[in-house]
């Protein structure tokens, strides 16, 4: 069993949360994203070394849809539906109706500006 060490940082923008190195940003609206039907789960970040992933799960997949662009993943949850962002080493984030963006952390690369950070 993996023990989850948790420390919360409370304050700031209530629409801006972080699970490890993944951002969970609640958006008012989003344009130019093609949303597809949600299936069993959505992996929004995967650690190659640990194999652990930040993923969205839900009991009502028919009420969720997802999209993606070069910045990260987008999730649309219908009003009244719920989903959870889970990870083996981090506390679960409960998500209710709305539009969310999940972004990985990008590290500066002097050769090519920024690269995505791997767990």
């Amino acid at each position: 069993m993996i023990m989850k060490k948790v420390k919360k940082y409370i304050g700031g923008d209530k629409n801006q949360n972080y699970q490890g190195d993944v951002s969970v940003i609640r958006l008012d609206s989003i344009k130019n994203i093609v949303f597809k039907p949600f299936k069993k789960e959505l992996k929004v970040a995967l650690g190659e070394v640990t194999g652990h992933s930040h993923r969205v799960i839900t009991k009502t997949p028919e009420k969720l849809s997802w999209g993606q662009d070069e910045n990260g993943y987008y999730l649309k949850i219908e009003d009244g539906a719920k989903a959870s962002l889970v990870h083996e080493e981090h506390e679960t984030h409960e998500l209710d109706g709305g539009i969310y963006f999940f972004g990985s952390q990008w590290e500066y690369d002097p050769l090519e500006q920024f690269r995505k950070v791997m767990d």
Partner: peptide, 19 residues
């Protein structure tokens, strides 16, 4: 802010919850 590309959404880094 840059590490999370928050400027794309006109946001600055102000976490409410970190786990």
């Amino acid at each position: 802010t840059k590490a999370y590309k928050l400027q794309v959404f006109n946001l600055t880094y102000k976490p409410s919850l970190r786990t």
